[in-house]
Structures are given as C-alpha cells and as structure tokens.
C-alpha cells in the first residue's frame, strides 16, 4: 500500500470538510467556507409529508453530496462516484484506491459510528468522512467534524457504509480523478453566489426564504393542531436539524458570512463585507431563535403565546434573509 501524508483539518460541516481536505491533498488550497459558498450550501426546504424521527422533515441544506458536486463542477474538478451492490465489491474498490494512494470520501450512516456520543447516534445516512490509509485490517479515518483522525475496523466501516433507511449510502465512495492546477476562482465564486440567491429566493412556497416563512406560520398553529406534546417534540427536532445535524441554522450562516468575506477579497467587491456582517447578524438571530425554542421545549410551555412568539421570530428571519439575498444578487 502507498503511504500518503493526509492532512486532517477539522471543519464545521462534514461535506465541506471532506471536500476541502481532499482538494487540499490534491494540491488545491481551498477553505471550507469557499467550498460551501461555491457549492451553494445554504438552502432551506420543508417537506411536511416526510417524517424524520416522527416529526416533519426540514432541511437546511441541499441533497447530500450536492455541495461537493457543485463546487467541483465550478472548479473544473472531475469526481468519480461509485456505489456498490455488496460489501465485497465496496471494500475491493476502497482497497484498490488506498493501494494507489488515493484518499477516498465515503458517505456513511452515523448510527453505528463508534466514536460519536450515544446521543448523536441516529439513523442519519448523509455523513461524510475520508479513508486515507489502512493498517492491517483497520482503516484510517479522517472524519472532518472530529478534532483528530480515528480508526475503524473493517466490520465497523462495513456497517456504516451499508447503513439502511433514507439516503442509504450503498457503499458510496467518491474521489477526484483530475484536479486542475489553475482554477478560475472568481467565476466559481460568482456562480456559487448566483445559484444560492436563486434557490433562496425561489418563487415557490416550501423552499428558501418562503419556506422559512411557511414553517414560521405553521409553528404558531402547532399547539392547537397536534397538541402541546407533539408540538414540543417538533420544536426539539427543529433545533436539532438547525444546530446539530449539519449545523444548518446559525452555523451555516456564519460559514456563509465567512465565505462572503473571502469573496469580497477575491472579487474585489467591498460591499460583500457589509453583507457578510448582515449575514452574521442573521446567524445570531437563528441562534436566538434556538435559545428561545429550547426554553419552550424544556419548560414544556403550554400557552400558545410562546409558539406565537417563536413564529414571529422565524418570520422576521425570513424577511431579513429575503432582503439579504436580494441585496446580494444586486451587489454582483
């Protein structure tokens, strides 16, 4: 096997982190916020008929894998993606890559990941990590949300690669096959921003800023519609989707604000610095919302007023984001 020097850098979000770490290994120095911005990682969609952990699904990000795919396309990087019908083939392909010294991204389920705290172990199948080597029967893992690298046995890795349920990874492995030495970063940053403003301002009810407003209005009705117990459960789910799984609410806004700062320098457009500041404030609003919502959850507040207030907070965030993405669109 070829021993490679793989630099592990911790990141806030797994998919950006894998992309940034793998591209850095391949000689393209690109930060997590740049991957996130170029890959148009900010998104919002409400899917009421799909239940996740017995609550309606809200996603703060596009479909798993899309951020890296979009960023790669903009940067002219070719990525090979492979899925497998069985474990045998999946590990043969991984071992082949490691023999060639190719660190490979894997999509995995988190439920069986032994290094995660028990409270984080749910059947969520869109986590990402890199395998960069093998020692005997153990695989060397760079999980971007961890501070340091980890080790998984083949059995453990097989479990997470073949987790079942929604977004089942089916052994999904991905790695760049060609990385250009020169990239047109300005063009990529511009396209990434354009795509984000288009998605967040999409003229449909359940997506982007409209989606946030839609859910905001729903929240006020939850106590009457589903009862206080379920409403509490739904609220807990919102906070977790927002701040935990992929750090969608405040967390994503801060990564995007960091991206806008980098973009201001890359494009020589100082107005993006002001928008970065606005985005930071909106991120703080999301965190404020999570803080209030968690109090309502903890105290199992029974009056509708608390839910009314949370509803107003969300609608306010939606209005602020509409203004921000409109200004962002104009500033280009």
């Amino acid at each position: 096997m070829k021993i490679v020097e793989f630099q592990h850098h911790q990141s806030a979000h797994c998919e950006n982190g894998v992309a940034s770490n793998v591209l850095k290994f391949n000689g393209l120095d690109i930060s997590e916020p740049l991957v996130f911005g170029i890959g148009s990682g900010i998104f919002y969609v409400y899917i009421p008929f799909l239940k996740v952990n017995h609550a309606p699904a809200i996603s703060y990000r596009p479909m798993p894998g899309i951020i890296f795919s979009r960023a790669a396309k903009q940067l002219n990087i070719k990525i090979k993606r492979e899925r497998f019908s069985n474990e045998e083939k999946a590990f043969a392909a991984l071992d082949r890559n490691l023999d060639l010294g190719i660190p490979s991204g894997l999509q995995v389920g988190v439920y069986h990941l032994p290094y995660f705290p028990d409270e984080y172990r749910f059947h969520f199948n869109a986590h990402n990590l890199v395998v960069y080597g093998k020692e005997g029967d153990n695989y060397l893992i760079s999980d971007p949300v961890m501070e340091t690298t980890s080790v998984l046995t083949k059995k453990e890795l097989a479990k997470v690669r073949f987790a079942k349920g929604a977004f089942a990874p089916k052994g999904h492995m991905y790695y760049p096959t060609s990385v250009p030495t020169e990239v047109n970063i300005e063009k990529a940053v511009l396209s990434g921003i354009k795509k984000t403003t288009k998605d967040m301002l999409a003229p449909v009810p359940l997506v982007g800023v409209n989606g946030i407003k839609f859910v905001g209005k729903k929240v006020a009705k939850w106590p009457k519609k589903v009862g206080i117990k379920k409403a509490n459960h739904y609220l807990a789910q919102i906070i977790r989707m927002q701040e935990e799984i992929g750090t969608g609410g405040g967390g994503f806004r801060f990564i995007y604000a960091a991206f806008l700062q980098e973009a201001a320098t890359i494009l020589g457009n100082p107005s993006l610095n002001d928008l970065s500041q606005n985005m930071t404030e909106i991120g703080d609003d999301w965190r404020d919302f999570a803080l209030h919502a968690s109090r309502v959850c903890k105290e199992r507040v029974k009056d509708d007023n608390a839910y009314q207030q949370l509803s107003e907070m969300m609608i306010d965030i939606s209005d602020k984001e509409r203004k921000l993405f409109t200004d962002l669109k104009k500033s280009l």
Partner: peptide
C-alpha cells in the same frame, strides 16, 4: 468547530464544547 468574528470583524474558527439549547433539544 464554529466560525466566528474576532475583534477586527474578521472570520476565523474556534472550538466549542457544547451549547445548552442543543443539549436541551437532545
């Protein structure tokens, strides 16, 4: 890992051991 602004308004990263609202939701 979190992204946050320093005293000059520049973004960089720092580590967090956890946040109470998240713990409550969990």
């Amino acid at each position: 890992m979190c992204y946050a602004v320093d005293e000059n308004g520049e973004y960089s990263t720092a580590l967090s051991s956890g946040w109470k609202p998240k713990t409550i939701a969990l």
